[in-house]
């Protein structure tokens, strides 16, 4: 196993200037993280711990103040098609049909038309949405929209998937269904995945390794290995081991919060 992604001593400081006053916020301080090829890593933390910032840095939408982010040994200099992103909101273009939304990502890669249509069919089948190619996003439920978002990420054949709280805006039942689908997808595609979440159950259920982040400043406080075999099914969530791991994450999260936050 080789390391595909290395986050080395990364810090990120935001400076917000509003007329005369200038405030600096340390979103991340000294974060180190290695992700192996084919691994599923979940990053969990309370609101404001900088976990989404970390994902933005990995995706190249933003740059670290200090430190380095290496993807296959190359420093990240900007967004690229080697990383497929699923956002918290589906972020679909409302004026394009489902099929054309997925094609958007392929157009950016200059994939030719005939090929694009084939890929769209494949990924829609993968996420269980075949037949919805001609629908507009506004005609789909939130869960289906997020499936389109996942399909779009798969369409670009990335070397790794970045998921930024992809199920955070969904209702509890839909969330479980999509988690199971994602687990199945991960098994069939074996794609390196980094999942940002605040849901401890989601992290334990899906990941091989859970990174717990603390806040103010954002930093890694613990890394927990999840030993469960795959395929994982719903009953796993009821086992004692599952509960023990969730409890461990809870205490790590508590420890990661500074005393000033309740």
């Amino acid at each position: 196993m080789t390391s595909i992604l290395s986050v080395r001593d990364v810090s990120k400081t935001f400076t917000v200037r509003k007329s005369r006053t200038q405030t600096s916020t340390h979103a991340l301080a000294g974060v180190d993280l290695e992700v192996e090829e084919g691994e599923f890593v979940a990053i969990i933390g309370a609101s404001g711990c900088g976990k989404s910032t970390l994902l933005r840095l990995i995706d190249g939408l933003d740059f670290p103040t200090t430190g380095q982010i290496l993807l296959r040994g190359q420093e990240v200099t900007g967004p690229g098609a080697d990383r497929g992103v699923v956002f918290q909101q589906p972020n679909l273009l409302p004026w394009r049909t489902v099929g054309r939304n997925i094609q958007f990502a392929l157009e950016c890669l200059r994939v030719d038309r005939a090929q694009r249509e084939g890929i769209v069919r494949d990924v829609l089948q993968l996420v269980g949405l075949d037949g919805f190619e001609q629908h507009y996003p506004g005609q789909l439920s939130g869960g289906m929209q997020q499936r389109v978002g996942i399909a779009r990420a798969y369409a670009v054949r990335p070397s790794m998937l970045l998921l930024d709280e992809p199920f955070g805006a969904l209702d509890a039942q839909t969330r479980v269904v999509l988690q199971e689908d994602l687990e199945r997808l991960w098994r069939t595609e074996q794609k390196t995945t980094v999942l940002i979440t605040h849901d401890m159950e989601e992290a334990v259920y899906l990941a091989d390794r859970v990174v717990v982040m603390g806040s103010r400043p954002g930093r890694v406080v613990d890394i927990v290995d999840i030993p469960f075999d795959r395929p994982r099914d719903y009953d796993l969530r009821g086992t004692a081991e599952f509960g023990r791991l969730k409890t461990r994450l809870w205490h790590a999260l508590q420890a990661g919060m500074n005393a000033d936050v309740a």
């Binding site: 995706d59 939408l61 967004p79 690229g80 098609a81 990383r83 992103v85 956002f87 909101q89 972020n91 273009l93 958007f104 990502a105 157009e107 950016c108 890669l109 779009r152 670009v156």
Partner: peptide
Amino acid sequence: VPLIEMGRAYGAGGAK
């Protein structure tokens, strides 16, 4: 802004 970021994340630059 999220839509613009989505575009950037998928490598859409300038004209696209």
